[in-house]
Write a protein that binds this DNA or RNA. Sequence first.
DNA 1: AAGACGAAAGTGGTTGA
DNA 2: TCAACAACTTTCGTCTT
Length: 307
Amino acid sequence: MDEEDIVKCTECNGRELERDDARGEIICANCGLVLDDRIVDPGAEWRVFSIEQGEQRGRVGAPMTEMLHDKGLSTDIDWQNRDYSGKSIGNGRTRSQFYRMRKWQKRSRVSNSRERNLSMALAEMDRIASRLELPKSVRERSARIYRHCIKDNLIRGRSIEGVTAACLYLSCRLCGVPRTLDEIAQSARTGRKEIGRTTRLIKRKLKIRADIPTPDMYTARFCSQLGLGAAVSSKADEIIALCHEWEIDCGRGPVGMCAASIYIAGVVLDNRRTQREIAEIAGVTEVTIRNRYKEIVQRLNIDSTNF
DNA sequence: AAGACGAAAGTGGTTGA
DNA sequence: TCAACAACTTTCGTCTT
């Protein structure tokens, strides 16, 4: 888990956290509680003085990933009875030895219920993320949150699907590429209600602070889904910025604000979509778009001449 | 006929006593 | 825990292009 995920010390609520790369720990500066261990040190532990030396010293395998239940680090024993050079491994005795090794390898890897739970969840997570075309960073972060859920016993009594979807929903928001609850729910195997409920629980228990998304986080995606170009998109962002300046957006849902801004931008630039079309993509009703639209036009005095 | 408009009643989540 | 509340939805009749 990143430092951004932990905002407060669970012991004393202190907000000053220190990162210790040498030990791989995150520590509360106030009371000294270790909040997270095994963080990844991004640096190398050796120094290089030339490119060739760097290449020599670099030991690079597949990257560690949160998306595999063993983080991609455990050993595989191939099913073929061949050694490293491809020669077949001979007699019956070594063969049966390999058979036993494979068996125990499998058993030790997905051994307990937690591991099984995790690998199921990660598979489900991957399925939803693929359908929503979510970037890898979002998946990694989501997997990280899920691991913490397991650690804090948040899964018991809840469905894997629900917690998985909630982790993704949260992760999207944390990564600045928010999806609406409806979008997640459409690809998940649970309802919007459960995802929302579980999300709130995770936020509370893991003390994750996720700011409410701003309207401009949706513009690019909605516009491209509507087949609108960069011109409309950036005009919509302009309107959103103005609305924020004039506090027209306070207390309003960000999706509705975005939808209305896109509608106005379309009208202004003579590249319009109907309220119906935008409402469909954004997941709000035409009425909401109309209400926002009315307020914005009124307060900003927008008409065809001044925009 | 499609799109836009707006009134009115209903819904689900948040807040504060 | 419950009621008040604001935002948003649903529904539907009317107006505009």
